[in-house]
């Protein structure tokens, strides 16, 4: 592939802390290699800002290979930017043209308060997992994987749901800031497997109760979450979550 450099202009959300009012700040970013990742472009800009004695832009990142779920930029109106099925760290500058103005915002949700600039607090997801996104195995050795027969189709669907990295792009994309795609992926993953059976009903009820407590919106099935998900989690999981919830709420005291 031809190696080119481009000059771009960034419009980035700056916010000192959760309480303060945010604003957009514009930056000229010249000489960016199209082979750079989006986060590397931010690194280049931040190095320059530090050298100039200015405050760098705060953003979340960790693994930079699309599996940790930390990066969380809303780029030109889409969570994780223009590419399909990728996280911000996997987005490369070849997705943009010379002279482009790129608007970068943090995830917007009342349940995800901005910590600083582009960093948001996604502790709400942790608390939803703590409410039921686990299985309890109290004793004994690890069981041989082959000892427990599981239908291929169910195993595949559970695995596809388990691919959710909890980045929160679904919440950022949803007009209601609903966390239903995330919760449905976690509920489906365990509801499809025999290991998840003992806590199946309590899990879905407790996770939904926590989701509501955190202040996420309800689901309108618009499909925006599915379209934005870097792990391409299917919206079918939401319908499965609804079925799980209906059955659990009708059959428990």
């Amino acid at each position: 592939m031809e190696h080119t450099t481009i000059n771009i202009k960034l419009k980035v959300w700056k916010q000192a802390n959760t309480q303060s009012k945010g604003y957009f700040e514009s930056y000229d970013v010249p000489g960016i290699s199209t082979e750079m990742s989006f986060l590397e472009m931010f690194d280049v800009l931040n190095e320059r800002l530090i050298a100039e004695g200015k405050e760098p832009i705060a953003f979340d990142h960790d693994c930079r290979e699309g599996i940790c779920g930390m990066c969380s930029m809303y780029i030109n109106g889409k969570p994780h930017g223009p590419w399909e099925g990728t996280t911000t760290c996997q987005l490369h500058m070849r997705a943009f043209k010379d002279g482009d103005i790129i608007v970068v915002e943090p995830w917007r949700a009342a349940a995800f308060p901005v910590i600083k600039d582009l960093m948001v607090d996604r502790g709400a997801f942790d608390r939803i997992i703590q409410a039921g996104g686990y299985i309890s195995v109290n004793t004994g050795n690890a069981v041989d994987g082959n000892a427990l027969p599981i239908e291929k189709e169910k195993a595949d669907n559970a695995f596809a749901a388990a691919a959710c990295i909890g980045c929160g792009a679904c919440v950022a994309a949803c007009k209601n800031s609903s966390a239903m795609l995330f919760v449905s992926a976690k509920v489906s993953h365990l509801a499809l497997l025999p290991q998840g059976a003992p806590e199946r009903k309590q899990r879905v009820m407790n996770m939904i109760a926590q989701m509501d407590k955190e202040g996420f919106g309800a689901c309108t099935n618009t499909g925006a979450c599915e379209a934005a998900c870097p792990k391409e989690i299917s919206i079918t999981n939401i319908a499965r979550l609804n079925a799980e919830y209906l059955s659990a709420s009708l059959t428990t005291a």
Partner: peptide, 23 residues
Amino acid sequence: NRKARGTAYAVSYGNKGSKWYSR
């Protein structure tokens, strides 16, 4: 649902991810 957003986006996701009538 409207309360759940907080601050509005400057650039909307719009029709890229969902149909206008579903929203």
